[in-house]
Amino acid sequence: MLEGYWLYAVIALFIIIPLAIYAGMLLSQLKKQTANQAIAEQEKQAALKKHDTKVLNSVVIIVRAMKEEQCELSEGCWRLSVLLDSLKLSSELNTLFPSVYALYDGIKHMPILEERKKLTKPERMKLDFERMKLEADLKSKIQQDVGQLHQYATERLSVISA
């Protein structure tokens, strides 16, 4: 009778030991996979920070140019809107700087570069008048947004680089 228990114990060991080894291997794989995911996430965040730093530096340059009137409001708002929309670590900026986006929304349908050259002179003048009227209507609000945007971009740069 005792021999039967030993036989069952030996059979159980032949089953349990390989299962334990297999479980250990799976746990080891899981640990490696988790570590690799953490490294990949860190690399992704670093890439996003690098991208946003580059964009925010460009925003600061454009904002300064707009403040010093070296850049037209419409061109600055166009560029700022596109840059701000490309930020990876920030969102909902159209609600923080509504006037910048309002001007951009008002002029984004207008042709530029070669497409603009194809227009007749009266068509260009009509679009220029539309753009200038929109700029005049939004000028003071845009200037406020630009001031706030400069502060926002500077603060975000210091947070990202920290």
Rank of each mutant, 00 (worst) to 15 (best):
M1Q: 10
L2I: 11
E3T: 11
E3D: 15
E3K: 11
G4E: 12
Y5T: 11
L7W: 03
L7Q: 14
L7D: 10
Y8I: 04
I11W: 02
I11M: 09
F14E: 05
I17F: 10
A20F: 04
I21N: 08
I21T: 13
I21M: 12
Y22C: 05
A23Y: 03
A23K: 10
L26I: 09
S28R: 11
S28L: 07
Q29K: 13
L30E: 13
K31E: 11
K31N: 14
K32D: 14
K32T: 15
A35Y: 00
A38W: 02
A40P: 05
E41D: 15
Q42P: 00
Q42S: 13
A47F: 02
H51W: 01
H51P: 00
D52N: 01
L56P: 08
L56Q: 12
N57Q: 13
S58Y: 00
V59D: 07
I61W: 01
I61P: 01
I62C: 02
V63N: 10
V63L: 01
R64L: 05
M66K: 07
M66Q: 12
K67D: 09
E69V: 07
E69N: 14
C71D: 08
E72S: 15
S74A: 15
W78A: 15
R79C: 02
S81P: 05
L83Y: 04
D85G: 15
K88W: 02
E92L: 03
L93W: 03
T95Q: 06
F97N: 03
P98I: 01
S99C: 03
S99V: 01
Y101T: 12
Y101D: 12
A102N: 10
Y104P: 06
G106I: 07
I107N: 13
I107F: 04
H109M: 07
H109G: 15
P111K: 13
P111A: 14
I112R: 12
I112K: 11
L113V: 11
E115G: 04
R116L: 12
K117N: 15
K118F: 02
K118Q: 11
T120G: 07
T120L: 06
K121I: 10
P122Y: 02
R124G: 07
K126M: 13
L127E: 08
M132N: 15
M132A: 15
E135A: 14
D137V: 04
K139G: 07
K141A: 09
Q143A: 09
Q143M: 15
Q144W: 00
G147D: 13
Q148R: 08
H150Q: 13
Y152D: 09
A153P: 02
T154C: 02
L157R: 02
I160M: 06
A162G: 13
